[in-house]
């Protein structure tokens, strides 16, 4: 039931509201005086008396209101924000546990699980930053190795996004990589949703893979239908050649990364690759995406149920304090009169 723009959990309790009139009828404080003619007329007293009664009524009323459980129910609010819907695909393969390549440190000598500079950690750090910068974005999260796990469906809930990203950086990687499955998963996540605005798939991986024809066809189709946009953050582990670079070297030409890049380019969707060699380039890539993905977006927010009892409690408390003070003062006065 709705009264005063609030929902009431127990509206029947409001039937007790007439009790708030009780202070106007009680005379339990009455003292008999021989002749009230002696009592001086005092307008201030009338005002005080009136306000005391009003305060007492207020206490009763606000306590009843509290009992009735006022709240603003959970509701969805649509507002126009800026940004995009982003599904983050993070490679969970073991190679992501390798130290992130920097110039001068060519190869991973040891696996640094649990150390701060593994690729996964770096990715985590910058993804968090990315998420942080974009309050209105809707994020989904897919972790993949040989299977794609849609850890988090598209959501506005920043906390869960952050928690998911944090969690994704825990533990050891798995052996296999199956990018195709992850990409299909991401597209499927979008297909369940209404179109709100710019849709982005952010693939974070350190390697490529050659897709089967079937997968290729499916991805081509899905990405087109869902009107997606693809960013690939390619974390190079070696200071090898760039994906873009054309090389005569056959071995490089046939690397899965190269083939994947080629396939992505052939998709008829906006696509960009960021080759990450250093922490700096990672952050630059993130910034670039950030800049590009600033389109108007209809953001749907769920405002949780909000209890509105507190103001009533405060009102009752403060009023009651005033009344208690008056009562104590009165009791003192009566005692003095009887001394």
């Amino acid at each position: 039931m709705t009264f005063f723009g609030l929902q009431w959990a127990l509206p029947t309790v409001l039937l007790l509201l007439p009790l708030a009139l009780l202070p106007w009828f009680t005379h339990n404080q009455d003292k008999t005086v021989a002749w009230s003619h002696f009592v001086p007329a005092d307008p201030i007293s009338n005002v005080i008396g009136l306000s005391l009664k009003i305060l007492a009524s207020l206490v009763v009323a606000s306590l009843i209101f509290t009992l009735a459980g006022p709240h603003v129910p959970e509701k969805k609010v649509e507002r126009v924000g800026k940004g995009a819907e982003v599904v983050i695909l993070v490679d969970r393969s073991r190679s992501m546990d390798d130290p992130f390549s920097t110039r001068g440190k060519a190869l991973a000598v040891n696996r640094t699980v649990g150390k701060g500079d593994s690729k996964r950690r770096i990715a985590k750090k910058y993804l968090l930053e990315f998420v942080d910068k974009r309050p209105d974005n809707r994020f989904g999260f897919v972790l993949f190795s040989d299977k794609a796990l849609d850890l988090l469906p598209l959501t506005y809930n920043k906390k869960s996004v952050v928690a998911t990203i944090n969690a994704s950086a825990l533990g050891k990687g798995l052996s296999e990589t199956n990018i195709a499955k992850a990409m299909i998963k991401a597209a499927e996540m979008y297909s369940k949703e209404d179109y709100h605005g710019s849709r982005t798939v952010l693939l974070v991986s350190d390697g490529g893979q050659e897709f089967s024809e079937e997968d290729k066809q499916k991805i081509t189709e899905l990405y087109k239908v869902e009107n997606l946009r693809l960013y690939w953050i390619y974390m190079r582990s070696t200071t090898g050649l760039s994906i873009e670079e054309e090389s005569e070297d056959d071995s490089w030409k046939n690397t899965p990364e190269k083939k994947l890049h080629k396939f992505f380019k052939e998709l008829a969707i906006p696509y960009r690759v960021f080759e990450i060699e250093s922490v700096k380039s990672f952050s630059e890539a993130i910034d670039t995406i950030d800049e590009q993905q600033d389109q108007t977006l209809i953001v749907e927010e769920i405002v949780p149920r909000e209890n509105k009892t507190e103001p009533f409690f405060w009102l009752a408390l403060i009023t009651m304090l005033a009344l208690v003070f008056a009562q104590f003062y009165t009791a003192w006065g009566v005692r003095k009169a009887h001394d």
Partner: peptide, 28 residues
């Protein structure tokens, strides 16, 4: 007794007249 004339020295005092029962209230 004084109490019957002046029932309270301070605070909110509700009185009723012994004769008429008329209620008077005063902030002493």
């Amino acid at each position: 007794d004084d109490v019957n004339h002046l029932p309270s020295h301070a605070g909110w005092t509700e009185m009723c007249d012994s004769e008429t029962g008329e209620r008077r209230s005063i902030w002493m």
